[in-house]
Structures are given as structure tokens and as C-alpha cells.
Design a protein around this nucleic acid. Structure first.
Lengths: 192, 192
DNA sequence: TACTTTTTATGATCTATGTCAAAAATAGAT
DNA sequence: ATCTATTTTTGACATAGATCATAAAAAGTA
């Protein structure tokens, strides 16, 4: 039976039969790209969602002329400019690979077809977004009252490797702190 | 044909036939409660989702012994302690009415049954969460780099009446700023 | 109307983190 | 290996907003 990281990801939430697996297979693509590859550009619609099979990525936008990382992603996670993907409006974010990576992609249209034709996929769609919401909510809510150091440690606990592999500046802007402050935090003795 | 605010809310996303409307009707309740009524208590599971037909509500938790408002809700919006509702884990948040209110409620179990038996409802469930995600993402992302005043003005532009009706302290903690700072902001000349 | 409680305002500090500038370290390229 | 560009570190200084303390105002209550 055929498989790939995306199918594993879906099966983590709902059970798929052989026919549906075959169908998903036929509508998604696997590609390898170099670090720095822009999967989605701001000003365009996000027409695909990507699952990172190997490597890492980030979404970012510009604020006062400076890049701000809005989220980081690693192996086994779905990436796209979500608000554009869901609403169909143009994206205010860019999505970029932060390492040489292998990703599985599926288009918005194909995903909608799967939702329409397979109740299991509709259910998967709901469960996936529910999970995203809970996670995002947890993170941002935490960030609200944490010191720079606490935020950094929260991130480290959730994305230990990526946090260390990705540029300091990207991580700093994701945490909403300056590069200099993060550099100083890293020099401090760990754990308060 | 029977109707209520919850059914209107659902029909805003998907078309319902008469039989499904009747079914939804039979599984939800309409109640009126006084200001201060706790719909969900932290430490318990959030077993219902509520639609505010009239009035307003907020979710809050405790941080360093102080109440922190995590979100405010007004007429036409769904309220619950979402992460508990979705995951089934106990809630870290309380949900409280901030004015005398009328709310429509439906239980988690009934909602799951609707999802299971009606593809339209499964689709509604997905679309509703997608919308929530986009909105929350927009807000928190904005908050990250805004000054206290900018955050307050963003909130005002989205929830003009509630922001003024609800306690200053609730609003301040929602914005992640101190009560004193918000009081000072309100005294400043508007719009930068 | 008087009394109590809750909410909002104001003044005086204090501090974490931002900003600017420049050096040091690291990674890439030829 | 050498040169160049990028990333990270370090220092000096500035500031938004926190905290603490108290007063004023508003809302409930009898």
C-alpha cells in the first residue's frame, strides 16, 4: 500500500481506506527544494498546503520595513499562509524553507474536492483546524504575560531542534523581542 | 419554520433543510441569566458551546493571582472554553456573562452527533473553526508589535460597544496591559 | 440620603527591553 | 586559504509601560 508523510498525518486523525489513500496519493506531489525557497509570496493567494517531510520552514511578513517571523515549522507539520488559504484572500505573509527540505503539497482545490467527496476527509479537516486553534491559542496566550526569557524557554520546549537550527533573528521576531535581547538571553544561565 | 440565533449563525455558513433545522432545535436550549453567571468553571470540562443572543461574556483565567481576560464576546458570537471543548481536557479558563444575557446552548455530545449524522454540519464545524483561527491569528499577531494604545484602538474598532460596556480591568488584561495604563490611554486624545 | 463596595484615575518611581553603533564570530564563495 | 557577506555579540543609553500608593468617582444597598 502506498504511503507518504501527508497520509500518515491524516491517518493520525481519521482512518482511511485503501481507495481513499490511493486518491490522496494521486492528487499530491512530493518535491525537494533548497533553503530559502519561497513556497508562498505575500500579495498572492496561498493555493497549496505543504507538509514538511524533512527540513523546516517559517512564515514571515514585514513590519516597519523589518522581517517578522510569524511561525516556525518542522518535520511532520503542515505549513501554509493559513488565513489566505482559508479565506481565499491574498496573503500578507511569505512562506519560506529555512533548510533544504522535502515537502508534500496538495492544492486548495483538490483538498476541497476531497472534503466534498469523502466525509472522512471533511472530518479530518475539522479536527486538524481544531488542533491548530488549540495550539495557537495556547502559545499566544502564554506569550501575552511572559518575559522574553520565559517565551524563549516555552518555544525551546516545543521546538527544541528548530529553535536552535534557525536564525537567531527569525526566532527573536517570532517571540516579539529584539535580536539583541535574544542573544543576551542565550548567554544567561538556563532555567531562571 | 422555527428559528433561533444559533440556527441563523449556522445558516450563515451552510444551507440547512427544514428537517435539520428541526433537529438542531430539538437539541439546543435557550436561557436567560444574570450578569456574573459562570457558564464554565476552570477545573471542569467545557461541555457546552453557547451563542450569545443578547448580552456579552468573557473568558478569563488566573495569572499570578490576578484575573486575566482571555477574550470578550458579544451578540451573535459563540462562547466556550475552546481548548477544553475541543480536546475534552479540563478547562483552565472560566466563562462568565458580563451583562444580563440570553444564550442558546448545545452540548458537545449533541454537536458530535450532528457532525456524525449530517455532512452539512461537519462542513459547518470545519468552516466555523477556520473562521475562528483566522480571526484569533489576526488579533494576536497584531498585538505582538503594537503599542498599548494601538492595541486598544484595534479592539475598539472590532468590538466598539462591548469594549466600552465591559470593565476597564477586563479590557486591560485582555490587551496584556495594566489597568492604570488603559485608564491613561482613555484620557489621551483619540487616534494618535 | 447616607454608607459601603467597586471601579477608575493620578502621581511618583522602577525596570525590562528597545534602539543605535560597532566589534567579533561564523559561514559561503572563489 | 583568502576574501566577503551574513549572523551574532556586546556596550551605552533611552523609554514605554509596570508597580505601588492613594485619591476620586461611580454604582449598589439599606
Amino acid at each position: 500500500m502506498k504511503t507518504n508523510a501527508l497520509i500518515d498525518f491524516i491517518q493520525d486523525k481519521v482512518r482511511l481506506d485503501a481507495e481513499l489513500i490511493e486518491t490522496i496519493h494521486s492528487v499530491c506531489h512530493i518535491d525537494s527544494w533548497k533553503k530559502g525557497k519561497l513556497l508562498i509570496r505575500s500579495g498572492k493567494r496561498a493555493r497549496h498546503v505543504y507538509l514538511i517531510q524533512k527540513g523546516s520552514a517559517r512564515t514571515f511578513y514585514y513590519h516597519d520595513g523589518k522581517e517578522v517571523t510569524s511561525w516556525i515549522y518542522s518535520e511532520g507539520q503542515l505549513v501554509t499562509a493559513w488565513s489566505s488559504f482559508y479565506t481565499g484572500m491574498i496573503s500578507s505573509e511569505n512562506t519560506e524553507l529555512t533548510e533544504d527540505s522535502t515537502v508534500v503539497s496538495i492544492s486548495f482545490e483538490q483538498l476541497q474536492l476531497l472534503y466534498k467527496n469523502y466525509p472522512k476527509m471533511q472530518e479530518f479537516g475539522r479536527l486538524m483546524v481544531e488542533e491548530q486553534l488549540v495550539f495557537i491559542d495556547y502559545f499566544y496566550k502564554g506569550f501575552m504575560f511572559m518575559t522574553a526569557k520565559e517565551k524563549y524557554e516555552l518555544l525551546l520546549s516545543y521546538f527544541p531542534e528548530v529553535t536552535l537550527r534557525v536564525n537567531l533573528g527569525h526566532i527573536a521576531s517570532f517571540l516579539g523581542i529584539s535580536q539583541e535581547t535574544l542573544s543576551r538571553i542565550r548567554k544567561m544561565p538556563a532555567r531562571k
